[in-house]
Nucleic acid binder design. Sequence first.
DNA 1: GGAGGTTCAGTGATAAAGTCACACTCGGAT
DNA 2: ATCCGAGTGTGACTTTATCACTGAACCTCC
Lengths: 213, 213
Amino acid sequence: MPAHSIFDTLSDTRKRETLAGINVMRFPPGQVLFRAGEHCQGLPLVIKGGVKVQMTGASGHSIVLYRMTADDICTLSIGCLMTGRGYRAEAVVEEDTEAVMIPRPLFDQLMEQSPDFRLGIMESYGRRLDDLMLLVEEVAFHRMDERLEEWLLARASQGQKVLSITHQELGVELGTAREVISRLLKELERKQRVRLARGKIELTGLLCQQGVA
Amino acid sequence: MPAHSIFDTLSDTRKRETLAGINVMRFPPGQVLFRAGEHCQGLPLVIKGGVKVQMTGASGHSIVLYRMTADDICTLSIGCLMTGRGYRAEAVVEEDTEAVMIPRPLFDQLMEQSPDFRLGIMESYGRRLDDLMLLVEEVAFHRMDERLEEWLLARASQGQKVLSITHQELGVELGTAREVISRLLKELERKQRVRLARGKIELTGLLCQQGVA
DNA sequence: GGAGGTTCAGTGATAAAGTCACACTCGGAT
DNA sequence: ATCCGAGTGTGACTTTATCACTGAACCTCC
């Protein structure tokens, strides 16, 4: 039985009733859930998997804003749903993902009837605002070399030792240019913290050790 | 009768009943509504005035995230209210401001009973997310000289020709250092777009013309 | 009105980051 | 084997950030 924890607080019959009309969708990596400008059809709940949300600004550059993983709510969609405006960002699946789409009427109904559903939505919103505020601070004030190391470290702590990612993609992650990433990675290679290959970054030495801890 | 448009959809008796228990508070410029780390006591609704919300990052630098004006809802507070975490930002009054504070129980009650109240909250959240996403893009990819001109232009279009603001404060607005602002302003002065004085920036020439249009 | 202190602004030197242009190289595909 | 495109390396230059310091404007207190 596919589920999202926001339904856990509903009674069993209520839950069955709610989930009756909606079906789980599966998405492969690379699939685009929504694009900038598109209109929102409902509220996506991620059951499992991973989705990155990124935007491309007026400047033509892109930056990853945040990620959704298992049990997440696509908060961004709520705003679009309410105001009727199109998405400002796009969502790209990174790992095989299962999600359900809550249509507007059901969303309204749940908001009306379930205090816990409301709480879940509000909490999710709060977290997202926090994420974005931290991102602003990060982008505005942190050095790129530190941000890059932190990013790699975060991956290392998930147990990944060899990352399959291009410098260009890393540039989008951190909101900078490919050349900047290339130079910083070369510098890290000189410091024996990574080994580089085409499309791959192997974490070694301190970067890897710390990641395990 | 002080009011916030989010109450407009309530029936007159309902509205009277709701507003009975809460009283309008007045704040002078400079007053701090909340600080980073403090806990949220309720949901502030701005009746009139102006409040800026800014955060100071781990780096020790500050940046203005957004502003609240008449009829705004302090969306940030909802997240804090729901999760119980402290504020990550601080709110500073800029103009004489009137606000009401909705205590948690009343907030919960309105969320349960009024679809329009829910809609208003959700819309407000959506706008805030949008604001922050645009800010990320702006900070990450736009040139500082353009951002500065846009900021000045936005003030000009509100009819202000002489701004009372220090370079330091402008640095916080745009998330950069005072020296950077000083140099860019000097450059604008050379281009006859502003006249500078201690604590003042007078908009002239194109910058002013465009502002009026 | 001056002395002294504080806030604000200007500027040079240097480092970090972004931009532009172009060369090279690795891995398929034909 | 050759070709081609995606990925990477790098020099030259611009923009922005940081550090250190100077000087100017304003305030307060005699």
